[in-house]
Simulated assay, not measured.
Amino acid sequence: MPSPSPAQPRRLGLTGSIGAGKSTVAALLRGRGLTVLDADEVAREVTRDPAVLAEIEAEFPGVVRGGELDRAALAERVFGDPARLAVLNGITHPRVRARMRALEQEAAARGEEWIVQDVPLLFEGELQGQMDAVLVVDAPLEVRVSRVMARSGLSREAVLTRDARQMPAEEKRRRATVVLDNGGELGALAEQVDRALAALGIGQEKSPSLS
């Protein structure tokens, strides 16, 4: 008789506007024993597949160079062009979803009750219905802009343009299960993460650490 399939872990969505500090929260969640599935990292993994690169190059000639995807060149091709972006998403999104499902099954096999799905455009992609709860990381606009300028070298105008392409932070806050305010110190953010996990009934397998 075949053994029963492991129970599907519950999904905790993690999202936030550009510069809000989502990666910092993801690291804190990992430190508390949770598996975090990073949609952006999975997308990078998918686009290292030669078959995927061939499809992308066929639609966007010149963006694959030396066997690697030139992400900046590709972004220029699809920026502000919903039709071309839809073509790109049609190539990558099914593969990203399949890989995320496989990673979830691995977590289920390990007996994990919750997994975190780190998805920058969670609401924009209308994925909130697939989550059991959603954490939104936010910070004041000027704080977010300064962070992105410091880490990326982008101009203020470029950061604001990118921010404007996303759902407004206020709307993300409205749709969140829990909002984490990341305008201050790491310790304060970590305390909010612990309170959020406790409120959601998510057990912490490791002792919290701010190191």
Rank of each mutant, 00 (worst) to 15 (best):
S3D: 13
S5I: 07
P6R: 11
A7H: 12
Q8F: 00
P9D: 05
P9K: 05
L12W: 07
L12H: 06
G13S: 08
L14S: 04
T15S: 14
G16N: 09
I18S: 03
I18L: 15
S23V: 03
S23K: 05
T24N: 02
A26I: 01
A26E: 04
A26V: 09
L28I: 08
L29T: 08
R30A: 15
R30E: 15
R30P: 00
R30F: 00
G31I: 02
G31N: 12
T35Q: 03
T35N: 00
V36T: 11
V36Q: 08
V36A: 08
L37V: 06
D40Q: 03
D40N: 04
D40V: 03
D40T: 07
A43G: 12
R44P: 07
E45P: 00
P50R: 01
L53M: 02
A54K: 10
A54T: 02
I56G: 04
I56Q: 05
I56T: 02
V63N: 02
V64M: 08
G66H: 07
E68D: 12
L69D: 04
R71T: 14
A72Y: 05
L74H: 10
L74I: 11
R77L: 12
F79H: 09
L85A: 09
A86G: 13
N89K: 10
N89S: 13
H93F: 05
P94M: 08
P94H: 10
V96C: 05
R97C: 02
A98K: 07
A98P: 05
R99E: 13
M100I: 14
R101I: 08
A102D: 11
A102C: 01
Q105M: 11
A107Y: 02
A107I: 05
A108S: 10
A109I: 02
R110V: 00
E112D: 10
I115G: 03
Q117K: 13
P120G: 06
G125Y: 05
E126Y: 01
E126A: 15
E126M: 03
L127A: 13
Q130Y: 02
Q130N: 02
M131W: 10
D132P: 03
V134E: 11
V134T: 14
V136Q: 14
D138M: 14
P140K: 11
E142P: 06
S146G: 15
S146F: 00
V148P: 13
M149C: 11
G153L: 00
G153E: 00
R156Q: 14
R156D: 01
E157C: 03
E157S: 13
L160Q: 10
T161A: 15
R162W: 00
D163E: 15
A169N: 07
K172Y: 08
K172Q: 08
R173H: 09
R173L: 12
R175F: 11
R175S: 05
V178A: 12
V179F: 10
N182G: 13
G184F: 09
E185M: 04
A190V: 03
E191D: 12
E191A: 14
E191S: 11
D194C: 07
D194E: 15
A196S: 13
A196Q: 09
A196C: 12
A198W: 00
A199V: 00
I202P: 00
G203W: 02
G203P: 13
E205D: 12
S207D: 06
S207R: 14
S211G: 08
S211Y: 06
